[in-house]
Amino acid sequence: MRGRVAFRGGGFAPRPSPLAGAATLIVLIAFWQTASWAGWLPRLFLPAPREIAIALYRLALSGELWRHLGASLGRLAIGWSLGTVAGLLLGFAVGLFTLACSPGMAVVSAFFPIPKIALVPLFIIWFGIGEGSKIATLALGVFFPTVINTAGAVDNVPRGLIRMGQSFSLSWLSIVRKIVLPGALPGILSGFRVTSSIAIILLVAAEMIGAERGIGAFVLSAGNLYDVDNLLAGIVVLSLLGLIVAWAIGWLERKLLSWRG
């Protein structure tokens, strides 16, 4: 063998760049707008971004957007919080106690794959046509993934750290609060990313029945009326909601998990 040895390492290490992410979205939207202007897309059934923006502006101006958004945000906040708190409690129980471990996971495995949308008619009978059934849909959709995720996160806390706590005779509560909880926090927070998206996805299903207001109900009604501008405006709002929530969780992670560096 003779000659220069060629470089063959590198790669397999993608670096995040928020700027590139934003630029991609902007280029996509610009391309869409151009295609509409040029007449490559049927304006009738796929409106241009400009028209969606105008629809959005009108909704914001008339106050309709804020009424729908207010109703949906309230449901999201209550439904997600209920599902998350209950899911965290059961998840910790499953992760910490033999007594809860197998029974808890059996129940979760049996009920998690059920499409919550299919249960909406039942929820109406159980919780009524008002806010109850909507919040139940969201809470249940959030509950099961939270249990699975939390139990996994608790299980992943290094046992060595727990033994260390015991070797210094820390109380059970101290071990849970100061070792298990912070150790499971990264996993729990990344679970929040998933469950918050699930909640936004389920919003449309939750607001299918008996909702006068709400972004989900608005999107459904615009769809029924083939009001494509408003339909897409509603979808843009849902998507922005998802972006904001993801950003908020990212911020929370940076705050709470600064020790990871």
Binding site: P121, I124, I129, M208, I209, G210, A211, S221
Partner: peptide, 8 residues
């Protein structure tokens, strides 16, 4: 109250 289906 929109409930999607006649049965509902």
């Amino acid at each position: 109250r929109p409930v999607q289906q006649v049965a509902n």
